[in-house]
């Protein structure tokens, strides 16, 4: 474990806590894409299939459970909780996210570490996570003004994988046989998708103005 990966995991955890705070405090999910939340739930379920069979550390197991439980709880909130469900704007959240699931799974069938059930689902979860934010970014562009907590949620979610890239560079330089091409390339693509969001987020922070993504 290195400082970049720990910072990345903590930033990821922070993004989830900010989203939970937003939903709990405002009893609303306005500006939040349910589809992105559903994709993330699939990402964690597909990636942590080895949760009970492969023990790495208490930290690793604990965080996997937190990520799975929180992503399912958020999807449950948006789908079932009467107050929150009412604020979900399905007319804005129209990204055809099942195409992202299909494309990622198809790619995982061709590009994986080993042709085994666990490795194909692991690669699938890596590819799916890279594009999971798309419905959310499209929703932000459509919904015009973005409330602070939602903006912070997306910012931390994008930053965590950026920190993981530093972690992969660090591990590549310090561990002899470290190669994680699938995770690295996918992580770079994932972080690049946030590029324009980061730009507008920085502008809004610098001008101390409301975050607004151009339509």
């Amino acid at each position: 474990m290195n400082i970049f990966r720990l910072a990345g995991d903590m930033t990821h955890l922070l993004s989830i806590l900010v989203l939970l705070l937003k939903i709990y405090a405002t009893k609303s999910c306005s500006g939040v894409s349910r589809k992105t939340q559903e994709l993330y739930a699939i990402v964690f379920l597909a990636r942590y299939l080895d949760l009970f069979t492969d023990f790495i550390s208490v930290y690793n197991t604990f965080m996997k459970i937190v990520f799975i439980a929180s992503s399912l709880a958020i999807v449950w909130c948006i789908r079932v909780h009467p107050m929150v469900k009412r604020s979900y704007d399905k007319d804005l959240d129209t990204f055809r996210h099942y195409l992202l699931v299909a494309a990622s799974f198809l790619l995982a069938l061709f590009l994986h570490e080993k042709f085994t059930f666990l490795e194909i689902f692991w690669a699938f979860s890596i590819y799916l996570e890279a594009v999971a934010i798309l419905p959310q970014l499209v929703l932000l562009q459509r919904s015009g003004n973005v409330d602070n907590l939602t903006g912070q949620y997306v910012f931390f979610l994008g930053a965590y994988r950026g920190l993981y890239i530093l972690n992969w560079i660090y591990r590549y330089l310090t561990e002899p046989r470290f190669t994680r091409w699938i995770a690295c390339v996918s992580g770079v693509v994932q972080t690049a998708l946030y590029a324009d969001f980061f730009y507008y987020y920085f502008i809004s922070w610098k001008n101390n103005s409301k975050l607004k993504l151009p339509a």
Binding site: M1, R5, D9, H12, R47, D50, D54, I56, S57, Y59, N60, M63, K64, F67, E113, W122, Y164, N167, E175, R180, A183
Partner: peptide, 10 residues
């Protein structure tokens, strides 16, 4: 942490 296990990252 058992480093080096294949998927030791989250």
């Amino acid at each position: 942490i058992v480093e080096g296990k294949y998927h030791d990252e989250l």
